[in-house]
Design a protein around this nucleic acid. Structure first.
Length: 370
DNA sequence: ATCCGGGACC
DNA sequence: GGTCCCGGAT
């Protein structure tokens, strides 16, 4: 059952040539492609983990402006990096990027290592990012395997097995490595991903425009839109939390989440999980425990919805009153009264940023927010 | 309203 | 295989 069903010999040479010449004609003009210095490649690849190009571009521009070099990134406080990352999601990536920059400065004289095994020892460098940086920054022949490549190759080779399986992933990696153009590995990798991101899209692949359509077994069999086969993700559970906006003069109470775990290191309005049989009294008690103040819940502001990977959050925001002086965070690393005008300086998750924007100007936002 | 796509790390 | 987010498509 190990028959070769990907292009070899002259077909492989033709496929490489068609893919690269399509890429040379059609590649998107992206900021990190204009100057693919190792630092810019590293930065772009971290930003691109789990995130689309269009979303990343403005973040990339802000990052290179704010942190123009590895050294400037390494010497910055993590809070500054998180602030720059705010709204992008998967905040562990920001922590990993920051840690990797520090490792590069401390152990590699500030130079991004130009060998795959050194790269893979850096924080946040998994198989994909290692191969991407090695090939794009240093022209080393390591094939990348990301979601785009999996889609392109499962179609090209008509792989009908569940791509969640480890053995199927291994097979796809081997095919990617075998097909990789050894002369221009960085461009060949980017070409494969670009093809997946543009023409070979998940729902409506534009096969007539595809430079390698004549090699594609999936298309020949008419099953391209059924590939790749992946096990379905289960339905997401729902969670409900209550957040409280506590004011004192022109300040608002905000708290910082622990560095590890969900939304690690981000600020938020004090929040507690709630059960359906609880009321304002219970929420106030829980928020008192969390903050060290004596909290009572008053009027409802808004209910916000937010989707995480494996649950959906319903966040009920209330105004409240607090008495007491001593702030004692529980389950937070820090808690403080912040001037409303200073909320912009702190890194919030999307959902708490929306709440912050709402309390700053409720009249502009109350009609449009959910 | 719901689903889907996208890597690292444990 | 579970934990980590958000935007865009449907």
């Amino acid at each position: 059952m190990s028959q070769v069903n990907h292009p070899t010999g002259r077909a492989r040479a033709g496929l490489r040539r068609s893919l690269l010449s399509w890429y040379d004609r059609s590649r998107r003009d992206l900021p990190w492609r204009r100057d693919p210095s190792p630092y810019r490649v590293v930065l772009s690849e971290f930003l691109l983990q789990q995130t689309r190009v269009d979303t990343v571009v403005p973040y990339f521009e802000r990052f290179v402006e704010r942190f123009p070099s590895i050294e400037s990134l390494a010497s910055a406080p993590l809070d500054d990096v998180l602030k720059c990352w705010e709204g992008l999601g998967y905040y562990a990536r920001a922590r990993n990027l920051h840690a990797a920059a520090r490792e590069i400065v401390e152990r590699h004289e500030g130079k991004v290592p130009d060998r795959a095994d050194d790269l893979s020892n850096l924080k946040g460098f998994g198989p994909y990012t290692t191969a991407a940086v090695a090939s794009i920054a240093f022209d080393l022949p390591h094939a990348v395997v990301d979601g785009n490549v999996i889609r392109v190759l499962s179609r090209l080779c008509a792989i009908k097995d569940d791509v969640a399986r480890a053995d199927v992933r291994t097979r796809i990696s081997e095919i990617a490595q075998d097909l990789l153009d050894p002369v221009r590995p960085g461009d060949a990798n980017q070409a494969a991903m670009e093809l997946g991101a543009t023409l070979c899209s998940p729902r409506n692949p534009d096969c007539p425009q595809c430079p390698i359509a004549r090699h594609c077994r999936g298309r020949k069999l008419g099953i391209q839109t059924d590939l790749p086969v992946k096990s379905k993700r289960g339905s997401r559970q729902k969670r409900t939390e209550v957040a409280v906006v506590l004011r004192r003069n022109t300040s608002v109470l905000v708290a910082k989440r622990p560095e590890e775990g969900l939304l690690g290191g981000l600020w938020e309005f004090p929040t507690v999980p709630v059960q359906s049989n609880q009321g304002k009294k219970d929420w106030g008690n829980a928020l008192s425990d969390r903050t060290g103040l004596n909290v009572s819940i008053e009027g409802r502001l808004q209910t916000l919805h937010h989707a995480f990977t494996h649950f959906e959050l319903e966040l009920k925001a209330y105004e409240g009153q607090a008495t007491g002086k001593n702030l004692r965070p529980t389950g937070y690393t820090e808690i403080r009264w912040a001037k409303e005008a200073d909320l912009d300086r702190l890194a919030f998750s999307r959902v708490h940023r929306r709440l912050a924007d709402y309390i700053a100007m409720p009249h502009q936002l109350e009609l449009t927010s959910v």
